[in-house]
Design a protein around this nucleic acid. Structure first.
Length: 659
RNA sequence: GCCGGUGUAGCUCAGGUGGUUAGAGCGGCGGUCUCAUAAUCCGCAGGUCGUAGGUUCGAGUCCUACCGCCGGCACCA
């Protein structure tokens, strides 16, 4: 039976980091688990290479988009290989086979009447390659906060609006289609609010897949990217996918757009979409500008990749956001892997070596061993159920309960005492067998999560069948063959010094970051700044994370803007809006003005009263939440759109004009 | 503002359909064995289960309101 699962294709705008690893590793775990259940599993990923950001990043490096994309794409592929993830197919969006598939799907949707040509005039964010329907001229992009540009384009539109009912029915009839539940609820409420048709082509971009017949149109990144899930397995009967494993930030594309595209083309839908949460670093979102991104490979160097796999799946309930810290990583490693699993293996094998010359004894009939067997049977049943439900954390917990049971058992039996008494020989043997059998079962169960360490333990136990050929259905208590000679015991998880290891991890991370920076050119590690629409390469001169300078204007243009010093007389929250404050400001006019500003998240009303601010005094009035705003307050816009009000170091009179 | 989620020991979290003294792991403290990776094992930690009401013989466990945090939507410089 086939099982086809995917992780996203990753955008070549950034080098691989732990976030990419998290998703892909989880898929690798599921793959190995499904294989143990007897499925023929295929796992795909790839690289998302099109779009203006890539075009620009390449130009800055003096490379063609193809060359640049190849470089990063290669980096991803090498990362998966280095970290031992079993990716079967890696599809690049620049692959001709993929191009053909995208055009084919487009044509099918069009033949079925779900695509038509239309024109759009409105705001466009060049950075996100996104149309912002509600925005007005000069408004910022809702995603990145950068200023949108007014554009007019003739584009192809996908009739997403036609699929509202069908999508809702899908979510209704197949509750498992989007998981976890919280994401499902979000998607449903989003679709219930009504769907707008979706522009799926762009004329402002060259680096993309050309639309059939139309030389100057290319496909919108998401129409392009999602289809890799099909093109990656072209020529096989793997479609539809059994699972798309994704991060929660791209739920909408997968749970709304993608099924709609497929419905339009009359194709089968994926069986399930599972969105996991984010990895935070010390409670903060990882971001390139903060410089707090963590990579997987340095951790692999310091403590082995299995340690990271274990930590991520044990510490963070899959689906929820979780926190990553180096301290917790090392602490988990020592407590669970070294003291727990590693030590049980070590003491068990060592006793078999000392007391029975490395030969696994017979199980015998010993009532005191029965509770251990019972616990093992229990875990044998609960573990797969947890894995099926994406509850990795719970699955691991149950295995560790069995480990604890075994440790307790050994102490109770005290084999070292039994060994001194020849009459206790059969009890000793039963004890050793029971311990070894726990090790065997635990190792097999843990193989999907700790593949490399499990393989080592497996061979130390003297098992002859390769561990990747073990099937869950064959696992049962008592399956360890007596008489088997164990291999050489070697520490699988040597204990680590917490402080020294964290320091080492930080050093290795630093080195890896430098290597990646060198690879792509330092400036490009940051999300590439938005381009000025006509002003050429103004983005090129900006430092990391800094938006590019807008197109040139004349002094006359500037003179049109009347900036004034004003004093805030009063500030009130606006009912029904999180971000708005209603301000009364004195510009030196006869009457105070009302200004509605979206700064409520950054400033409390009482912080503002009495403060001098800068106002755009001649901006056309605009209605916001029913209130007329007579002007705009000037603020620096930080990452995430957070505003910081402009002010003066010296005292300035109200009404003064800024020139 | 609407919708969803969440708030339980220092930390990470369990606690279907309400019922004896609220649990686990980690960390911390004390003790123990010696097969083992200064590991294991045993004991201890006395937490108003966010707050305030309510339903009930009885509520982390159901209801209402409020507060905090997270997310989606609306909205936005």
């Amino acid at each position: 039976m086939k099982y086809y699962l995917t992780v996203p294709i990753y955008y070549v705008n950034a080098a691989p980091h732990i976030g990419h690893f998290y998703t892909t590793m989880a898929a690798d775990v599921l793959k190995r688990f499904k294989i143990m259940q007897g499925y023929d599993v295929v796992l795909t990923t790839g690289s998302d290479e099109h779009g203006q950001n890539v075009e620009r990043a390449a130009r800055l490096l003096g490379k063609t988009p193809e060359e640049y994309a190849t470089l990063i794409s290669q980096e991803f592929r090498e990362t998966w290989q280095k970290t031992g993830l079993l990716v079967d197919r890696f599809m690049r969006t620049s692959d001709p086979q993929h191009h053909a598939k995208v055009r084919w799907l487009f044509e099918r949707c069009r033949e079925n009447g779900y695509i038509e040509k239309g024109s759009y005039t409105g705001q466009y964010c060049f950075n996100c390659e996104l149309y912002v329907n509600e925005a007005q001229a000069g408004d910022p992009c809702p995603d990145c906060g950068r200023t949108t540009e007014t554009v007019t384009e003739e584009n192809y539109f996908f009739k997403l609006s036609a699929f509202q009912d069908r999508l809702l029915r899908l979510y209704e009839e197949q509750p498992q289609f989007i998981q976890p539940e919280i994401r499902r609820n979000e998607v449903i409420s989003f679709v219930r609010q009504g769907l707008r048709d979706l522009s799926i082509t762009r004329t402002s971009i060259k680096w993309g897949i050309p639309v059939p017949v139309e030389g100057h149109h290319v496909f919108y990144v998401w129409f392009d990217a999602l289809i890799t899930y099909m093109s990656a397995v072209e020529g096989s009967d793997l479609w539809p996918a059994d699972l798309h494993l994704i991060g929660k930030e791209i739920v909408r594309f997968h749970a709304v757009y993608w099924p709609a595209f497929l419905m339009a083309a009359g194709l089968p839908l994926p069986k399930q979409i599972f969105a996991h949460g984010w990895l935070l670093f010390d409670g903060m979102k990882m971001s390139k500008t903060r410089g707090n991104i963590v990579r997987a490979t340095p951790i692999q160097q310091a403590m082995g990749i299995d340690a990271l796999r274990y930590y991520l799946l044990r510490e963070v309930p899959f689906g929820a956001d979780g926190n990553f810290t180096y301290e917790a990583l090392v602490s988990r490693y020592n407590a669970d892997l070294a003291n727990g699993l590693g030590n049980l293996v070590s003491r068990t094998l060592s006793m078999i070596q000392q007391y029975r010359q490395g030969i696994i004894p017979g199980a015998g009939q010993e009532p005191s061993c029965e509770p251990v067997a019972a616990k093992a049977r229990e875990v044998l049943a609960s573990y797969p159920a947890s894995m099926e439900a994406f509850e990795f954390s719970r699955a691991l917990e149950s295995v560790w309960q069995l480990l604890a049971t075994a440790d307790k058992f050994i102490v109770t039996q005290a084999p070292w005492t039994l060994a001194k008494n020849p009459e206790a020989s059969s009890k000793l043997e039963a004890t050793l067998y029971t311990a070894a059998e726990v090790v065997r079962l635990v190792t097999a169960l843990l193989y999907p999560i700790l593949p490399h360490s499990a393989a080592k333990i497996w061979s130390q136990l003297g098992m002859t069948t390769p561990i990747d050929q073990v099937r869950l259905g064959d696992l049962a208590w008592g399956g360890l063959p007596p008489g088997q000679k164990i291999g050489k015991p070697e520490g699988v998880f040597p204990r680590l010094d917490p402080k020294a290891t964290v320091a080492r991890l930080l050093d290795l991370e630093e080195a890896e970051r430098e290597r990646q920076d060198a690879l792509v050119g330092k400036k490009l590690v940051a999300k590439t700044p938005a381009a000025a629409p006509e002003g050429g390469d103004r983005g090129a001169g900006m430092r990391e994370g800094v938006a590019p300078i807008a197109p040139e204007i004349t002094i006359d243009d500037f003179a049109k803007v009347d900036l004034r010093v004003a004093r805030v007389l009063d500030a009130q929250p606006v009912a029904g809006a999180d971000k708005l404050l209603q301000l009364q400001v004195d510009l030196g006019e006869a009457q105070p003005r009302t200004i509605v500003a979206g700064i409520a998240l950054a400033y409390k009303p009482e912080q503002l009263v009495g403060r001098k601010v800068v106002i755009v005094a001649n901006l056309a009035p605009r209605k916001l939440r029913g209130l007329v705003s007579q002007g705009m307050i000037v603020a620096a816009s930080l990452e995430g759109g957070q505003p910081v009000l402009a002010g003066f170091l010296e005292d300035v009179p109200v009404g003064a004009r800024l020139k």
